[in-house]
Write a protein that binds this DNA or RNA. Structure first.
Lengths: 235, 235
DNA sequence: CTGTATCCTCAAGGATACTG
DNA sequence: CAGTATCCTTGAGGATACAG
C-alpha cells in the first residue's frame, strides 16, 4: 500500500488493490465465502498471517465488514463498496481467460479444481439418486490423483478419499486436460476424440456427464480469433 | 510476477497486473502516450529502470508492442490484448473516484494536475486568440506554486515558468482545492462561495473559466449516496 | 531521447509452528 | 475455528548517476 503520489482515481484504487492476493480474497468473498477457513481454501498458498493482514486492510478501507454471524462464528462480508468490485473482478477474469491461455504445471491444483467444480455443479441436471463420480488424474502424484464428487440431495460433496459409495462413473484423464475443459480452453468432445479423457461407466452416464459437470462461468467468454494466414498457419 | 498456483483466470491476470505501477503504465498508454519520457511524465515517481522492466514484461506477455515510429523514435503501443484492458482501467477509476475520496498531501502534485488538465482541455470552448491562465497555489512551496496554461491554436501548453504573454486571468487557490474540483469531488460554485478560489480577471473570463478547464472524465461518475440518519447526521 | 548501471535498503511475504 | 508468533530471505523497487 505504498502511495503512488498521484490524485488519479486509478492510482488511488491500485494502492489498495494491487497488493498481492488482495483481489483473490475479494474474488472468494464475491463467490460467497464468508469464513476465514473458506477464504484460506480458496487461496491455499496464502499464509494465514497474510490473509489476516489483507482482511484488516480491506476492513479499514471499507471493502469488507467483519461480524460475528448468528452462530457466533467470525464472518467477513463485502460492503457495498466491496460489492462494486464485482464487475472489475469479472472483467479481469474475462481478460485472463481470453489472453492468458497457457497454464504452467504450477497452476494446476486438483483441490482447487474440484472445489471450483463443486461450487457451481448444476445439481438439477443430475439423477435424483445418489451419484458418485470418481476422478483419476494420471499426471500427478498418487497422493493427489484420486477424488470423488458426490451428489445426493441438493448439496454436492468433494472427497480426496473413497467415501465408500458405489461409483457411478470414473473419469480418467490428466489434471491439465480436466482443467482446460473446465476453463473452456477446449471442449469435451475434442478431448474425448483425442483420447485424453476416458469415462468408465454406463453409456447413458458417459453421454450426460459433460452436462453434469458443466464448465466454469468464465468458460463462456469468447476467445480472441486467431489470425490465420492464407497458408493456413496461425500467426 | 510470482505465480499464485491457481488456474483461475483472475489469478492468472493478476500475476501480471498486480505488480506495482503496471496498470498505471497501461493507463498512460490508454491515454495516448507512446514514448518513454511521456510514460515517465505520467508516473514521475517511477524510476526509469523500473519503467523499462515493466515495459519489457508487458511486451513479453503481449500487452504492448515496441516499435520505432516513423521518425525512428522508440514507441510503445498497446496491442489488441492491451487495448482490452481499457474497460478494466476505467472501472478501477470509477471505483476509485467513488470510494476513495480522501486525498493525502502526498497525492497532490501540481505537475500531474496541469498535465492532466492539458490533456483534455476543450480548446473549442476557448477564445480564438491566445489565452493564458495563470495558476497560483497557496498551499505548496513557492518553487512549484506557479503554473501557466497557454491556449493558442489547437495545442494547449503548460509551463512552470512565466512564458511572458499577457495573462488573461489568474486563479488563486489551494492545490488541494483545485485537485478536488478537477476530480469532481466538489464544484466550482461551491469552492468559489467558500472563498477557496479567487479568479482575478475580467468578469466574462471569470464566468467562462470553469467551462474552459472542465473536469477530468471520471468526475462525471456519480458518488455513493451518503446515508443520512433522521437526526441529519451523516452515517 | 531512451534507456543502463549500481547500489542499497527494507519490508513484503513465504514457511512453519503454535494458541485461546 | 480463527487466528498469532516468529523467523527468514530475497527480490522489489527507490535513488542516483551515467551512456549511446
Amino acid at each position: 500500500m505504498t502511495a503512488y503520489g498521484q490524485f488519479c482515481p486509478v492510482a488511488k484504487a491500485m494502492e489498495i488493490l494491487d497488493e498481492r492476493w488482495t483481489l483473490l480474497v475479494v474474488r472468494e468473498l464475491l463467490a460467497g465465502s464468508t469464513h476465514f477457513n473458506e477464504l484460506r481454501r480458496g487461496n491455499p498458498r496464502m499464509s494465514p498471517a497474510l490473509l489476516t493482514k489483507r482482511l484488516r486492510t480491506l476492513e479499514r478501507v471499507g471493502v469488507v465488514r467483519r461480524t460475528g454471524d448468528p452462530s457466533g462464528r467470525t464472518s467477513y462480508r463485502l460492503t457495498e463498496c466491496g460489492e462494486e468490485l464485482r464487475p472489475i473482478v469479472e472483467s479481469l477474469g474475462a481478460w485472463g481467460v481470453r489472453w492468458i491461455g497457457e497454464l504452467g504445471t504450477e497452476d494446476l491444483d486438483p483441490h482447487l479444481l474440484l472445489w471450483d467444480i463443486r461450487r457451481t455443479v448444476p445439481v438439477d441436471e443430475w439423477p435424483r439418486s445418489r451419484t458418485v463420480l470418481a476422478f483419476a488424474f494420471d499426471d500427478v502424484p498418487q497422493k493427489v490423483a484420486h477424488w470423488w464428487l458426490v451428489v445426493a440431495g441438493s448439496e454436492p460433496d468433494v472427497c480426496d478419499y473413497d467415501p465408500g459409495f458405489e461409483v457411478t462413473a470414473t473419469i480418467r484423464t490428466g489434471l491439465r486436460t480436466m482443467t482446460e475443459i473446465w476453463r473452456g480452453d477446449r471442449s469435451w468432445v475434442d478431448a474425448l476424440r483425442a483420447g485424453e479423457v476416458e469415462v468408465v461407466g454406463p453409456d447413458t452416464v458417459r453421454r450426460d456427464l459433460p452436462r453434469w459437470l458443466g464448465q466454469m462461468p468464465l468458460a463462456a467468454v469468447p476467445r480472441p480469433t486467431p489470425i490465420v494466414s492464407p497458408s493456413g498457419q496461425v500467426g
